[in-house]
C-alpha cells in the first residue's frame, strides 16, 4: 500500500465535500469576527475597567478570544471528517480500497489535522493582527515576550482539538454521538466545573482547558489559582488527550466490524 496514494485520496475526499469548506470558513470568520468585536469593546472600555483587571489585561489572548467559540466549528469539522464515513456507509468502500487500518487512519488524520493546522494558523495570525490594530494604545507587538508562542499556539490548539474530535468520533462511530458529547463538554461542563473551586483542579486537566493555556501570555495571578503547568505543559496535556483518543479510535477500527 502506497501511503502517499492514501494521502492523495484523503485529500480528494476532504476537498470535495461542502462541509469541509463551510466548517473551516466558519471557524475562521467566527474567531476573527468575535475577537475583533471584543477588542473594539475592550479598547473603548479600558479606562472603566477595575485596576486589577487592567493589570492582568492580556492583549494577545484578547485578540483571539473568539476562538473559544470558533473552536466549535473546528470540532464539527473533525467530527464530520470521520463521522460521514460511517453515516454514509462510505467506510466499507474506503476500507475495501485501503484495508490496512493503520494506513487508512493515519492518512485521514494526517490530512485533516494538517488542514486544520493551516487554517488555524492563518486564523490566529489574522485574528492577532486585526485585534492589535483595534486595541489601539493597549495593543502589543508580535516581538514581545511570549506573544509569538501564543499566536502559534492558537493555531496548534485548533489542529489538536480537531484531532481529538476525530479520534473520539472514530471511537463512537457516529457524528451525532460525538457532537452530543463534545459540544456540551466544551461549552457547558468545562466552564461550569472550571468556575467552581472544588472542581477547578479537575477542569484544569480537560483537554480544552489545558490546551488554551498556550494562548495566554499573562498568568492569571489575580485569584491566585494558577494551573499546575506552563503553556507547553498544558498543550502537552491536550496533545496527550488527542493521542489517547486516536489510539482508542485505532483499536476500535481494528476490532470492530466495519
Amino acid at each position: 500500500m502506497s501511503f502517499p496514494a492514501v494521502l492523495r485520496s484523503e485529500w480528494t475526499k476532504i476537498r470535495t465535500v461542502a462541509s469541509t469548506v463551510w466548517t473551516l470558513a466558519a471557524a475562521a470568520v467566527v474567531t476573527v469576527g468575535m475577537s475583533a468585536l471584543l477588542c473594539v469593546f475592550l479598547n473603548s472600555q479600558f479606562e472603566n475597567m477595575p485596576k486589577e483587571q487592567q493589570l492582568a489585561f492580556d492583549p494577545t489572548a484578547s485578540s483571539f478570544a473568539g476562538m473559544s467559540l470558533g473552536q466549535a466549528a473546528v470540532i464539527v469539522f473533525g467530527v464530520l471528517v470521520v463521522g460521514t464515513e460511517y453515516s454514509t456507509g462510505m467506510i466499507r468502500t474506503s476500507l475495501a480500497a485501503v484495508p490496512r487500518r493503520g494506513s487508512f487512519l493515519a492518512g485521514k488524520l494526517l490530512v485533516a489535522t494538517a488542514l486544520a493546522l493551516a487554517v488555524g494558523l492563518v486564523t490566529s495570525f489574522v485574528s492577532f493582527f486585526t485585534g492589535q490594530a483595534l486595541l489601539g494604545e493597549h495593543s502589543i507587538g508580535i516581538g514581545e515576550p511570549n506573544v509569538l508562542r501564543a499566536v502559534f499556539g492558537a493555531g496548534l490548539y485548533m489542529a489538536v482539538i480537531a484531532l481529538f474530535a476525530m479520534g473520539l468520533t472514530m471511537v463512537l462511530r457516529s457524528s451525532m454521538l460525538a457532537l452530543g458529547i463534545l459540544l456540551p463538554f466544551v461549552f457547558l461542563l468545562s466552564p461550569i466545573l472550571g468556575s467552581v473551586d472544588a472542581t477547578q483542579k479537575v477542569a484544569y486537566f480537560f483537554p480544552n482547558v489545558a490546551g488554551s493555556r498556550i494562548m495566554q501570555t499573562v498568568p492569571a495571578v489575580l485569584d491566585g489559582s494558577e494551573p499546575p503547568y506552563g503553556p507547553w505543559g498544558g498543550f502537552g496535556i491536550m496533545a496527550a488527550w488527542a493521542a489517547l483518543a486516536v489510539v482508542a479510535g485505532y483499536a476500535v477500527l481494528r476490532k470492530r466490524d466495519a
Binding site: R8, K13, T16
Partner: peptide, 18 residues
C-alpha cells in the same frame, strides 16, 4: 456506500487515487 455530498466522479476519484 458512497458519500452523498460528493459527485459521482469525485467519489470514484478518491477510490482510484488510493
Amino acid at each position: 456506500a458512497m458519500h452523498g455530498g460528493r459527485s459521482a466522479y469525485n467519489n470514484l476519484l478518491c477510490l482510484a487515487q488510493s
